[in-house]
Design a protein around this nucleic acid. Structure first.
Lengths: 193, 193
DNA sequence: CCTACCGATCGGTAGG
DNA sequence: CCTACCGATCGGTAGG
């Protein structure tokens, strides 16, 4: 059973995602909670605190998805596929938190803003590790431009909040991306030998 | 020589990109223009009008980049490469307008908001056409998942405003993406025959 | 959780 | 382009 505080955090996630942090007023949140504006301050210290909690929720979810990727060193490509599935699953299950994590985080005040950037960088580096390890194990082509590949896959992941609908088959979507990333859009015929 | 009105539009692009539409006040814009707040209303009718102008600037720039792609039907892959170069070049040359176009458009009021969405859909469809035509001409693998490929390439394009720095060699960056999109991250060795 | 209120700021206008 | 101002709303607080 969700506490009123937890309810408020999830309402904040929804409205921050819909209208933006600065486009959402405490009065908006109060109305969505069915209480008067002043009453919110028994549940949170400030609007900014709600932003901190929602972005943190996103960070935890995305890192958690990567944590769930099996450690199996024998299948580095499969690990990448799992990571992509995991990321898209988080976006579908927690669109609002994912949206705030990806788009509204910049309205965090210091020092949380800097801490957030470090946290996000850490997430991106974990993706970099996944690809780098796969390359080192020979599962990726030896002449691969790893930084560009990381940026490409993170672009797909980070843009997902704009189009994923809750309830979508994210595993299938992730696999469709994965197939293209693996072997490219070009036909075998025109591929160099 | 830029008029004061044009200056205001470009200042609005910068601040809307930096602080968000709702995070930017008319007082902020006035300060950046070096005038009093009330004076802005001889240059624009409203803050919302500025948002309309900036998003429109982005739309014109992105469509213009696609218009500049040569019509040569003999080289459908080259056209895709050119389109990617063009998009990233716009992002680098007009980061602020590109950012507002990609992220702040949702604060447009009706009916401009709906019109914007149609415009953006048209842009995405032009990308879809590029890939579909390439597929039809046999330049892409026959079993390609075209919708997923379009979404992947648009993800890379739409996410670019978050990391591209003005002055970057966007042609080289576009080509690095293009190479990966073409033949994938996997090595030749493990590729099916 | 409510009522009542705070000073500050919001986008915008009038008149010059 | 300025000064002076409008009513509305902002995030937040006091006291119950």
């Amino acid at each position: 059973m969700a506490t009123r505080r937890e309810e408020l955090v999830s309402v904040a996630a929804r409205l921050f995602a819909e209208r933006g942090y600065h486009g959402t007023s405490m009065a908006d949140l109060a109305e969505a909670m069915g209480v008067q504006k002043g009453s919110l301050y028994s549940l949170t210290g400030s609007k900014q605190e709600l932003l901190v909690l929602v972005t943190r929720e996103g960070a935890v979810a995305f890192h958690g998805a990567l944590d769930a990727v099996p450690e199996d060193d024998e299948a580095p490509l499969e690990r990448i596929r799992r990571a992509l599935r995991g990321h898209l699953a988080v976006v579908a299950a927690q669109v609002d938190a994912a949206t705030v994590f990806t788009r509204e985080w910049r309205f965090l005040e210091e020092p949380e803003r800097t801490a957030f950037r470090a946290e996000r960088r850490r997430y991106e580096e974990r993706w970099g590790d996944l690809l780098r390890e796969a390359a080192e194990r020979g599962a990726l082509r030896s002449d691969l431009d790893v930084p560009a590949a990381v940026l490409l896959v993170l672009s797909a992941a980070n843009w997902a909040y704009t189009w994923i609908r809750p309830g979508a088959d994210t595993d299938a979507l992730a696999d469709r991306f994965f197939v293209i990333l693996l072997d490219g859009v070009r036909g075998y015929a025109t591929r160099p030998a």
